[in-house]
Design a protein around this nucleic acid. Structure first.
Length: 504
RNA sequence: GGCCUGAUGGCGGAGCGGUUACGCAGCGGAUUGCAAAUCCGUGUAGCCCGGUUCGACUCCGGGUCAGGCCUCCA
C-alpha cells in the first residue's frame, strides 16, 4: 500500500517513505490551553487522527509514534492566571483536561505522547544555548535571545521555502513595526524576560557575562525542542493548521536546522501537512464576530461522531463551511450506516484468509485515503462498496443481506459470502475513518434513560398486541404517544425496533 | 502592497481530456393496515471570455468573484 501525501514544503504530492518503517513519527501542533477549544481547533485533530489511524493500519499499531503537544506557557495563560489569582498550572491543567475529553468525544485516539512546554524547559534552554554558541542567535541588552533569520537563510531562500515566499518578500510585505532591539526585522524571539508576576524559568547563559537569563521561552522553540526530545529527528510528518506555516513552522525549521548545522529543511521534518480553515457561514471564525463555536457546547447537542463526520466532509486542505445543515446531513449519513449495521448484526465480517488477496482488496478499499487522504472519495466508497471477484450484481451490504431485495438465484447464492466481505470492508474503512465505533444499538438508543427505555418497550408490546388484533386506531395512538416521547418506531417482518429521534 | 488558494447540480462534495462520482433533499415505484425505516428507479452541473484538441467541467491564457496568509490564531 503506497501512501501519497501533499507536502507543503515541496508543494506537490509525494509518495510517503518513512525514515524507519519500524518507527513512523508524526508531530502535530496542539492547543494553547487557556480556554475551551473551538470547533476550528478540532479540525486538525480529526484530520490527523485519520492519518494516524491510516499509518497504524499500514505500518502496524506499535510502529507509529504520534506526538501532539500542549502549549502551557503563553501570554494569554499568564493573563488569565493573573486575573484569577492562581498559578498558571491551575488554568492549564483544567483546560488540558477539558481539551482531551472533548477530542476523545470526537473519536480522536490519544496521541502516543502529549509533551508539555513546562516539562521541557531544559531541552529548550539547551537548544537556545547551542544556537547562541553557533552564532545563530544573539542576546540583546534587555536579556532577550533572538534568532538571526538572515544568517540562516544566507540568501538561499530556505527560510521562506515552506510559505512559498522569499525573505525579501516577507520583509517588504510586513506590516509589523520593527522592535528596536532587533538587529534585523525578521529576527524572532527564542527567549525573553518575564514581566512582573509572570512565571520565570532559569534560561540560557549569556556568553558575555556567564549569567543565566531568567525568563520564559518564545512560542516556536517549544515544538522544536519537544519534537526532537520525544520523537528524535528527523520527524517523518509534521502537521498543523495552515496558519502555522508562517511563522510558527517556518521558525521551527530554522531553529532546529540551525541547532544542528543542517541546511536542508528536510533534516527537521520530511513531510509537512497543513489543514485548511473552517468558515462560519463564509466568515472566518473570530471572537470579534461572535461566531465562535466551542466543541464543548457542540458535544452537548450532537454525538461526537456526528461532529467528527462533519469535520471530515471536505478535503482536509480545503476550507470547510461549518453550518447546522452540515451537522444534520452528517447525522443522517451516520444514521443510515449504523442502520445497516443494526439490521445486519448477524452477518459475520469476513476477510479473505489468503494474505495476497486480502492485501489487494485492502489497497483498493483504502486507495482514496492513500491518495493524500481523499476522504470524500473514501466516503463514496463507504456508501457504495463494490463487490469484486464475480460479484457484479449487488453492491451494498443492505442489498446483499436484505431478504426483501429481489435477486436472481445466482446472486442469492453468492450473497451471504459477499455480504460478509462487504461488512468486513465497511468496518475496516470505518475504523480508519474513526466512525461507526459505537454499538449500533447504543447509537440509536444510547441517549435514552433506563426509565424511558422501559416505558418504550412497554408501549411497543401494547402496540404489537393492538396490531395483532387489527386495532389500528389504538396502534396508531400508541405510535403517536411514542413520537411524543421522541421515539421513532421501525416495523419489520421480525418485529418492531425503535430509536431515539435526531435533534434532541 | 506582497504571497497563495479556490469557483461543480436545490445543498454538501470528489475524480476525470471522450463513458454514472458519492451523499443529503426532491420525484416515481416496491414494501406497509397507514406511516416510518428499507429496497429499486430518476431529474438537475461545472463563474465569464478566448485558446489548444477530433473532443474540455477536466489542459493553457485573460477576466470576474470569493477566501486565506503576511500580526496571536487550527
Amino acid at each position: 500500500m503506497k501512501l501519497t501525501i501533499y507536502d507543503t514544503l515541496e508543494r506537490k504530492k509525494r509518495e510517503f517513505e518513512p525514515k524507519n518503517p519500524e518507527r513512523v513519527t508524526l508531530y502535530v501542533c496542539g492547543p494553547t490551553v487557556y480556554n475551551y477549544a473551538h470547533i476550528g481547533n478540532a479540525r486538525p485533530v480529526v484530520v490527523f487522527d485519520v492519518l494516524y489511524r491510516l499509518l497504524r493500519h499500514i505500518y502496524g499499531e506499535d510502529h507509529v509514534v504520534y506526538a501532539r503537544n500542549i502549549t502551557d506557557v503563553d501570554d494569554k495563560i499568564n493573563k488569565k492566571a493573573m486575573d484569577e489569582g492562581v498559578d498558571i498550572s491551575v488554568i492549564t491543567n483544567k483546560f488540558a483536561d477539558i481539551y482531551n475529553a472533548d477530542m476523545a468525544a470526537l473519536n480522536a485516539l490519544p496521541p502516543t505522547y502529549q509533551p508539555r512546554a513546562t516539562d521541557h524547559m531544559p531541552d529548550m534552554v539547551a537548544m537556545i544555548e547551542k544556537l547562541i554558541e553557533r552564532k545563530a542567535a544573539y542576546v540583546t541588552d534587555d536579556g532577550e535571545v533572538l534568532f538571526r533569520v538572515a544568517d540562516y537563510d544566507a540568501g538561499s531562500g530556505r527560510y521562506g521555502k515552506l510559505s512559498g515566499r522569499s525573505l525579501d518578500d516577507m520583509i517588504a510585505g510586513a506590516r509589523v513595526e520593527v522592535a528596536e532591539n532587533k538587529d534585523d526585522a525578521a529576527d524572532f524571539v527564542l527567549w525573553k524576560p518575564s514581566k512582573r508576576g509572570e512565571p520565570v524559568w532559569p534560561g540560557p547563559r549569556n556568553p558575555e557575562t556567564g549569567d543565566v537569563l531568567p525568563g520564559r521561552p518564545g512560542w516556536h522553540i517549544e515544538c522544536s525542542a519537544m519534537s526532537e526530545a520525544v520523537l528524535t529527528l528527523p520527524i517523518d510528518i509534521h502537521g498543523g493548521g495552515q496558519d502555522l506555516i508562517f511563522p510558527h513552522h517556518t521558525n521551527e525549521i530554522a531553529q532546529s536546522c540551525a541547532t544542528h548545522g543542517h541546511d536542508d529543511p528536510a533534516a527537521y521534518a520530511r513531510y509537512w501537512m497543513h489543514n485548511g480553515f473552517l468558515d462560519m457561514s463564509g466568515e472566518k471564525m473570530s471572537k470579534s464576530l461572535g461566531n465562535v463555536v466551542l466543541v464543548h457546547d457542540l458535544t452537548q447537542q450532537y454525538p461526537g461522531e456526528v461532529i467528527r463526520w462533519a469535520l471530515l466532509s471536505g478535503h482536509y486542505r480545503s476550507p470547510l463551511n461549518w453550518t447546522t445543515e452540515l451537522l444534520e446531513q452528517s447525522r443522517k449519513e451516520l444514521d443510515y450506516l449504523y442502520g445497516i449495521l443494526l439490521r445486519h448484526e448477524n452477518v459475520v465480517a469476513w476477510a479473505p484468509s489468503d494474505e495476497q488477496t486480502r492485501e489487494k482488496r485492502e489497497s483498493v478499499l483504502l486507495s482514496s485515503l492513500l491518495d493524500d487522504l481523499n476522504i470524500s472519495d473514501a466516503k463514496a466508497r463507504l456508501f457504495n462498496l463494490k463487490g469484486d471477484e464475480g460479484i457484479d450484481l449487488a453492491h451494498k451490504l443492505e442489498h446483499l443481506a436484505n431478504p426483501n431485495v429481489d435477486r436472481t438465484a445466482d446472486a442469492a447464492e453468492v450473497a451471504p459470502t459477499a455480504a460478509s466481505l462487504v461488512k468486513h470492508d465497511l468496518l475496516l474503512l470505518a475504523k480508519v475513518l474513526g466512525i461507526l465505533q459505537t454499538d449500533p444499538e447504543v447509537w440509536f438508543k444510547g441517549g435514552a434513560s433506563d426509565d424511558l427505555t422501559a416505558k418504550v418497550e412497554a408501549l411497543l408490546v401494547a402496540r404489537t398486541e393492538a396490531r395483532a388484533a387489527k386495532n389500528w386506531a389504538e396502534a396508531d395512538r400508541i405510535r403517536d404517544e411514542l413520537n411524543a416521547l421522541n421515539i421513532e418506531v421501525m416495523d419489520s417482518p421480525t418485529g418492531a425496533t425503535w430509536k431515539l429521534k435526531a435533534g434532541v
